[in-house]
Design a protein around this nucleic acid. Structure first.
Lengths: 343, 343
DNA sequence: CTGAAAGCGCTTACAG
DNA sequence: CTGAAAGCGCTTACAG
């Protein structure tokens, strides 16, 4: 094979018969160059296969145009799809994604954050990751904006983008009550997360409007096995629920699998409602009634919030909440007027 | 908020009362520093919150310790899980992942590759992405190793890691024949991909051993809708198949949804076999008999191949194939001796 | 519009 | 073991 040779702006300058600064200007949008010079430079660059070294550019400008994206588990289909959309949106803005998978080990997040900062990312997006105050202070000290996606951290002064989780929970409560359900149980999202808490609180509030309260509540920990076990326990009780609101679709699928396994039928024996509306929720095997998190709008809000903080460091943290409509499918019995989505 | 100040090795040197080079040596594994000096430097670094700038280091060493990871669609659960494992493996080796989502638009891949090279990645992994010869030449010229994950490109002189796809197809053929199936159809993976071709070829070869040939073959394009339509067409034919081998799990789920929708039962009316063994294949709703791609071994082989080429540029391209066992579940009728997996 | 020069924050021979 | 100096490949005032 041929020896790999690094082509630099000096090489291009020599070939084009101009100074190295002239070459740099041709590749800097907005810099002033004579058309003739630009033409010579571009020709030489093309012949040599030259492209400016982004790392060198980053050093000198202080902008790496890289965004750190920290995610935990990708089994829940919501996150891969979110990553896909976030990447596309960032690429469209000329940014690049430095991806970090966080196991939730103690101290792991701290180490990741050090790496992130060492690579001089311009901003950070975390998805479904808990963050210690230590870490946030480190980011603040370094002047690097951070946006939490699908998670809030009340009082931490951090930006976040979520759906209107409490309202979503209330919508589910009203829908189930209208459908004639009397014993409404909840397999919640992890109660250590704002998302899980808010949805559970919303359900309670919605039931309270009808003078009801939840039948049983078990923390599903966003985990398939935990959720399935909870469902089994609920359905084996003396008076089992006639509806279960599950804290996200990922767990709802596990619940439906477990019910099927027990010989129970959905929604005849029990209604199931999820949260997220991942693509799989629409698949025939589940046909899940669920609250849709408007992914594209959440992604856009996340990117917009982050970029505005990058461009204006004085910008205060924002907490964006996006309305989440209820999507009616076959997994939950409906009341008489419920033909439409978006309660 | 406090003004974000960039701490450099100069700041640490000043505080520790040593030269800037001494600071650098403390953070360079293997460099010679007196223990006392190291202690002073580390103390100052800690007090100041200093970490070496990875970009500056990359400039001077010529190694960015970043790997470009190019992926297309994340709807197929195989890829998110692969990304997760690949990231973890690379992080464990001290590398970082620069993630690129490729839409399969014309010219898109070329643009991504330019970006990738501009960021001075040390190597590239592509997953389920087609690559033009143009692009590969560009990488070769730049001396940047590339490994294709779950895809081969015969004759291109590129490294690749796949499962033994043709053998996998043969295993499916033998299993279905042994199960007494007489009309075996195939909804193939995209025939523009080596993976799709090899699995289809394996099925043909395996059937030929029994003097049979495939009933019908339709290209499912790795697409849910296309696969579902193919299944409907097959089952509405005058003499429908008694088994369908589907080119990957992602399509197999769509096929099973479509069959359920037609009122057909699996495996009573027709046996279904997939390929990949994504986590969802084991879920109750599908319980899919499938060929398992050993993800961890594929990931390890990918990382090992890439790193060995990074460390020794003279290293020739490798094409690694990893044996893929058949996993027996409930979606396909078995023959009498088929109690065990791994035909 | 253009070139010479300084400098981003490091690593790494080179002397001592 | 340690410091002064060169240099990685760029961008960007500064003169002209």
């Amino acid at each position: 094979m041929s020896t790999p040779i690094k082509i630099t702006s000096m090489d291009v300058a020599r070939m084009a018969g101009v100074s190295q600064s002239a070459v740099s200007r041709v590749f800097t949008p907005g810099a002033s160059v004579a058309p003739a010079t630009a033409a010579k430079v571009r020709a030489a660059a093309k012949a040599l296969g030259y492209r400016p070294n982004s790392l060198a550019r980053a050093m000198i400008t202080g902008k790496s145009r890289m965004i750190g994206l920290v995610v935990a588990y990708l089994d829940n289909q919501f996150y891969p799809v979110a990553i896909e959309k976030l990447s596309h949106a960032l690429q469209a803005e000329g940014y690049h994604v430095l991806l970090f998978m966080a196991s939730n080990t103690q101290g792991e997040m701290e180490r990741l954050m050090e790496d992130l900062l060492a690579y001089q990312v311009d901003g950070i997006i975390t998805a479904s990751v808990a963050i210690s105050n230590d870490v946030t202070r480190r980011c603040a000290d370094a002047g690097i904006p951070l946006v939490m996606f699908n998670r809030g951290q009340p009082g931490a002064g951090l930006s976040s983008v979520t759906s209107a989780n409490a309202l979503g929970g209330r919508k589910v409560a009203r829908f189930l009550v209208a459908g004639g359900h009397r014993r409404i149980a909840h397999i919640s999202g992890w109660q250590g997360s704002s998302t899980g808490q808010d949805r559970a609180r919303g359900l309670r509030e919605g039931l309270a409007e009808a003078g009801m309260e939840p039948d049983t509540v078990i923390d599903g920990m966003y985990d398939r096995d935990t959720a399935a076990a909870a469902a089994r326990r609920m359905m084996q009780a003396a008076s089992p629920p006639d509806a279960i609101f599950v804290g996200n679709d990922h767990m709802a699928f596990a619940v439906m699998d477990a019910l099927r396994d027990m010989g129970l039928r959905v929604p005849r024996d029990v209604s199931i409602v999820g949260y997220d509306d991942v693509p799989m929720a629409a698949w025939g095997a589940y046909d899940l009634t669920t609250v849709r998190q408007p992914l594209l709008r959440m992604v856009d809000a996340t990117v917009e919030t982050l970029l505005s903080q990058i461009n204006d460091p004085a910008r205060a943290a924002q907490n964006v909440e996006i309305d989440a409509p209820l999507i009616l499918r076959g997994s939950a019995r409906r009341g008489e007027g419920d033909d439409d989505a978006g309660l």
